[in-house]
């Protein structure tokens, strides 16, 4: 089978050339080995190693950003970026998350600040034999512009959209890879995540049927220190708070990631707080993605990326909580 295959060196060359038209972001290894999505050259390329720990959607919805500026009696939106982004490093689950928050930010009220960055951005997924400790990453399919499927060393390149195909054409040369290599990866990929999805579905059913008592949520919230990491790492958590800051000649309005695990998140000016108890906040974190969103969007909005389970210092990420819940009440 003739497909485009790139060595890491060739991939680097391709990404470097793409910088003419794009603001290229790739997985890099930082000073101490932490892997993040950064600018090409910010550190050694670090595509292999699995999903990036940081909130992957922070590329388009960063920790803190200006949403408007007020000076001389008028308002200004932030200037759009000079180039669209080309982002490498989304996993299949990450791309699913992105697809969801694209819909979320476009629903009813379109979030211009988000789409200033998101519009025309090229999403390049990474899959195959390049997960953490050599594990297989699920093949993405068509929920991205391009995909790099790692065979353990090199990358088989697939394009799904017009922009992706056009980029591939620019690369040119193709190589032959054994057909079974790709087939085997796809076959193994199809086996992945079923167990996790079954667990989420079972937990979702319990929540929708209201079969999980408060005592369960209390026992989970006893172990929650309100670090907020679950929300700040989750690619589908989209909540933010706003604040104003003077800048010498005017005022900037900023937004900053918020967390439903904070008491102040829904506290009213009167002091009344519909989420004023820890157990309610803990319940909401899980309930929102597995029950409320099912009602609103028709599906669960956790895509099993694993970030909240990785980042939670006390082991109560969504998968861990669902496991306990299903074991007890399922």
């Amino acid at each position: 089978m003739k497909v485009l295959v790139l060595t890491e060196q060739k991939l680097m060359e391709f990404l470097a050339s793409a910088r003419t038209a794009y603001d290229v972001r790739v997985p890099v290894s930082l000073h101490d080995g932490t892997r993040v999505i950064g600018r090409l050259g910010e550190g050694p390329l670090a595509i292999k190693g699995g999903a990036i720990n940081q909130k992957i959607t922070s590329i388009f919805f960063p920790h803190m950003e200006t949403v408007l500026k007020c000076s001389n009696g008028g308002f200004e939106s932030p200037e759009p970026a000079p180039k669209p982004m080309l982002v490498v490093g989304f996993t299949k689950q990450d791309a699913d998350c992105l697809e969801f928050i694209d819909r979320f930010y476009n629903d009813k009220f379109r979030d211009d600040v988000y789409f200033n960055k998101r519009d025309n951005a090229v999403i390049v997924c990474v899959s195959g034999r390049c997960g953490a400790n050599g594990k297989l990453l699920k093949v993405s399919g068509d929920n991205c512009d391009m995909e790099l499927i790692c065979d353990g060393q090199d990358y088989i390149v697939r394009a799904y959209t017009d922009v992706g195909k056009s980029l591939i054409e620019d690369i040119g040369s193709t190589e032959i890879v054994p057909e079974e290599t790709l087939e085997q990866i796809e076959k193994e990929s199809d086996q992945l995540c079923v167990e996790g999805l079954d667990l989420l579905n079972a937990a979702s059913k319990l929540l929708l049927e209201d079969k999980v008592p408060d005592e369960f949520w209390q026992s989970i919230s006893d172990r929650c220190i309100a670090c907020t990491s679950c929300n700040l790492a989750c690619p589908t958590c989209t909540c933010f708070d706003v604040f104003d800051r003077t800048n010498g000649c005017g005022i900037d309005r900023w937004r900053i990631w918020d967390s439903c695990q904070l008491d102040g998140f829904m506290r009213e000016a009167s002091g009344h707080n519909p989420m004023g108890q820890e157990l309610i906040r803990t319940r909401r974190r899980i309930h929102h993605k597995l029950a409320a969103d099912v009602t609103r969007w028709g599906h669960i909005t956790c895509y099993q990326c694993g970030r909240c389970d990785n980042v939670c210092p006390t082991g109560i990420g969504i998968m861990s909580v669902c496991k306990e819940m299903v074991e007890k009440y399922g």
Partner: peptide
């Protein structure tokens, strides 16, 4: 404009 934990740090461990 933000913070990212170090996943490699002996104490933080990405948290």
């Amino acid at each position: 404009v933000g913070i990212e934990p170090s996943s490699e740090h002996v104490t933080a461990k990405g948290q």
